[in-house]
């Protein structure tokens, strides 16, 4: 097996107490190699953000382990944890909530530089800030240094968020719906900027999105993991997932997603599910979570046993479904 930069083993996270308890992430295992991009797709509330925060060390797992550069992050010593803390950064979805409204762009970017002594003094901090703003294409830099977040557009704020994440030279970035709240016309340039960081700086990405088309565009050379109510149901390379999906849920998604191309979208044959209801986390169906809706449902099997992610075919295509066999 290859050495992963970051990996999750049987990661589970619950929220709430007693009766209210829900399992947002249930037994997720995955690994991301250095320089790779892994996309996490799935519908609202399926646990994408929670998984991202668990990997970024912003939430503690209820059970399971996370290893970063081979070390278990929650049992390692303080110094290693600090290395992990700075090595893994997150970019949030909402450009209006992710920057502190009372700081200028320069203050936002120089705080981590100075705090961690990544630069010698204020002058060097300023130079580095200018450099970072250039990396994220916020030029002319002078126009932005003294601006407050409310003076920037959504796209510009997201760029500042990216620059802030880059201050500590991370090797892994969790981009949680980082472009879904900015306009279509601006989205592409943001995505391309992130791709460029991946190429030039070798940053590894966990790219979280609910938009399959974006996942395809950003992670064409990487892999996609499809989540359904807390678990990964399919995980494979992007072209394989788009063209040769195996899990009935993934297939249903691909058949349902409307396309920005009239002929393409009108020729799609939607897959009829047995039910429209998305299961509530409070009241999960036994066995496979998808069985009440699944067209391949087999009584006595799917509603009894929860399927595990297993390899089908070659090149590491993994599917969690009883009815799909390699």
């Amino acid at each position: 097996m290859t050495e992963y930069l970051i990996e999750a083993h049987n990661l589970t996270r619950q929220f709430g107490r007693r009766r209210e308890r829900v399992t947002a992430v249930d037994d997720v295992s995955l690994g991301i190699s250095e320089g790779e991009v892994l996309c996490l797709v799935g519908e609202s509330g399926c646990g994408k953000t929670t998984t991202g925060k668990l990997l970024a060390g912003l939430l503690k797992p209820s059970s399971g382990r996370i290893r970063y550069q081979g070390q278990d992050v929650w049992t390692q010593d303080k110094e290693s944890f600090r290395k992990y803390r700075l090595g893994v950064q997150i970019i949030h979805q909402d450009p209006y909530a992710s920057l502190n409204p009372s700081h200028t762009v320069h203050q936002i970017l120089s705080a981590p530089l100075l705090h961690h002594n990544l630069v010698n003094g204020r002058r060097q901090a300023r130079e580095r800030v200018v450099e970072l703003l250039q990396i994220v294409d916020l030029t002319p830099v002078e126009d932005f240094l003294t601006k407050y977040p409310h003076q920037l557009s959504g796209g510009q704020r997201q760029r500042v968020s990216v620059a802030r994440a880059l201050t500590v030279n991370p090797s892994f970035i969790v981009a949680d719906e980082a472009v879904s709240m900015v306009d279509v016309s601006i989205r592409v340039s943001l995505l391309k900027m992130l791709s460029r960081l991946r190429m030039q700086l070798g940053v590894t990405f966990l790219f979280i999105t609910h938009d399959l088309a974006l996942a395809k565009f950003f992670a064409w050379e990487g892999r996609i993991a499809v989540m359904y109510v807390g678990s990964v149901v399919e995980l494979t390379s992007t072209p394989e997932l788009i063209n040769n999906a195996q899990h009935p849920y993934t297939k249903a998604l691909l058949a349902a997603v409307p396309e920005a191309d009239p002929n393409l979208t009108r020729r799609k044959k939607p897959i009829t599910l047995r039910s429209q209801d998305i299961p509530s986390l409070r009241n999960l169906p036994p066995g496979c979570r998808f069985h009440p809706r699944c067209p391949l449902f087999e009584e006595g099997l799917c509603d009894r046993v929860a399927p595990k992610l297993k390899s089908v075919g070659e090149n590491g295509h993994q599917v969690a479904c009883h009815r799909v066999t390699g």
């Binding site: 557009s153 796209g155 510009q156 306009d183 279509v184 016309s185 601006i186 989205r187 592409v188 340039s189 995505l191 391309k192 399959l212 088309a213 974006l214 395809k216 565009f217 064409w220 072209p239 788009i242 691909l254 997603v257 396309e259 920005a260 191309d261 393409l264």
Partner: peptide
């Protein structure tokens, strides 16, 4: 034209996307 070229489709091969420069 710019909008259409900036939006990816799911099905089909990888297409490069072109962004519209500037902001509204």
């Amino acid at each position: 034209l710019g909008l259409i070229r900036a939006v990816p489709t799911v099905t089909g091969d990888f297409q490069d996307l072109i962004s519209i420069p500037g902001s509204p």
